[in-house]
């Protein structure tokens, strides 16, 4: 039980670690910022994949939705990046609440495939259908339209880094709270045995729906931060061929855990960073990586670490027992 007492420190430790890394490797700041943003995205997918057991091949569409709603707001309607983030969050809630009942009642593979189709429609919409607003593949630029935010001017990459760290910390704390709350247990229980859950009196549809909304909101939040960080968006973010990436990252970190997505994001982006020096298109790598992780390493980085910790604690207990 001692671990429980100190466990609350981990979110601070991990964000602190990122900030420390930024000073140790100043040239890698962009990379570290992306780790934070990508973590949020992976956390969203982890709710679907790890907690509820849904595979979605359409997560990029929610990322792209967040990015485009922030971008469209900043390019046409307002100037404050913070409001843009709020807009993206609202869009995420709205999409989750409205699309949820349609998508979430589809099971297993249907959910996966329909999400993929949804993602294709999303890509088509920003690339071609709404080209007048989104500027299609040229991308939508709005960096110069943003005004300074109070306290911390997040238009500066240096400041944005701290803002991203702050958001990551807040989401970490909420995510940890979710994991330890009844809700987290209910998510996992619904994945484990939905029948039992229903015959215990839980409306599992609502549970899955809520999970879907949370996943969507995290994705749009991440998307809006990406948009503000870059100062522009293009359809690349929502490309459906990238749908597997977030699943790999979730698997790599350890699905169904609080800190798994964070380590998944670090590991995945780290590998990408290193490998992209040699190859530009790296579907091959994503594929190989997924198969290895799925068959040989399915507890992920964080999951494996926890297993080792548990095992060592058990041996300690055993040693204590034997005089």
């Amino acid at each position: 039980m001692a671990r429980r007492t100190y466990e609350w420190i981990l979110p601070f430790l991990f964000t602190g670690g990122l900030i420390l890394a930024r000073y140790l490797f100043p040239s890698k700041m962009t990379f570290i910022t992306e780790v934070a943003l990508y973590s949020l995205y992976v956390m969203g997918n982890n709710i679907l994949f790890g907690y509820l057991g849904y595979v979605s091949f359409g997560q990029p569409v929610y990322l792209s939705m967040g990015a485009y709603s922030a971008a469209i707001y900043l390019a046409y309607l307002g100037r404050s990046p913070l409001t843009a983030i709020l807009v993206a969050l609202l869009v995420g809630i709205l999409v989750g609440v409205l699309m949820g009942p349609v998508l979430i009642r589809l099971r297993g593979s249907y959910f996966t495939l329909v999400n993929a189709a949804f993602c294709a429609i999303g890509l088509f919409t920003v690339e071609r259908l709404l080209i007048g607003i989104t500027r299609g593949n040229d991308g939508l630029w709005f960096r110069t339209r943003m005004v300074a935010t109070p306290l911390l001017d997040i238009r500066q990459p240096k400041n944005f880094f701290f803002f991203a760290m702050f958001v990551l910390l807040v989401v970490f704390l909420l995510y940890r709270r979710m994991d330890r709350s009844v809700l987290g247990a209910a998510f996992k229980a619904t994945q484990g045995n939905e029948r039992r859950m229903q015959f215990m009196g839980y409306d599992t549809f609502k549970i899955r729906w809520l999970g879907f909304v949370l996943a969507t909101v995290l994705s749009t939040l991440s998307g809006s931060l990406y948009a503000i960080n870059f100062g522009f968006v293009n359809p690349n973010l929502g490309e459906n061929s990238r749908a597997a990436e977030v699943i790999v990252a979730t698997l790599l970190g350890g699905s169904g855990t609080v800190y798994g997505p964070f380590f998944g994001a670090i590991t995945f982006l780290g590998i990408k960073e290193i490998v992209s020096q040699w190859i530009t298109r790296w579907e091959l790598l994503v594929g190989v990586l997924t198969i290895i992780v799925l068959f040989k390493f399915n507890r992920g980085v964080w999951g494996t670490f926890m297993d080792l910790l548990k095992r060592s604690r058990k041996t300690v207990v055993l040693q204590k027992k034997t005089p």
């Binding site: 994949f49 057991g53 595979v55 091949f57 297993g108 593979s109 996966t112 597997a244 699943i247 698997l251 298109r281 790296w282 579907e283 091959l284 790598l285 994503v286 594929g287 190989v288 997924t290 198969i291 799925l294």
Partner: peptide, 23 residues
């Protein structure tokens, strides 16, 4: 096994193939 295994596995095989085709 769970459906997600086959989906993720076959999609990975597809991605590997796409990578090779590009080469």
């Amino acid at each position: 096994k769970n459906m997600l295994f086959s989906m993720v596995t076959t999609f990975s095989v597809y991605l590997i193939g796409i990578g090779l085709i590009q080469y």
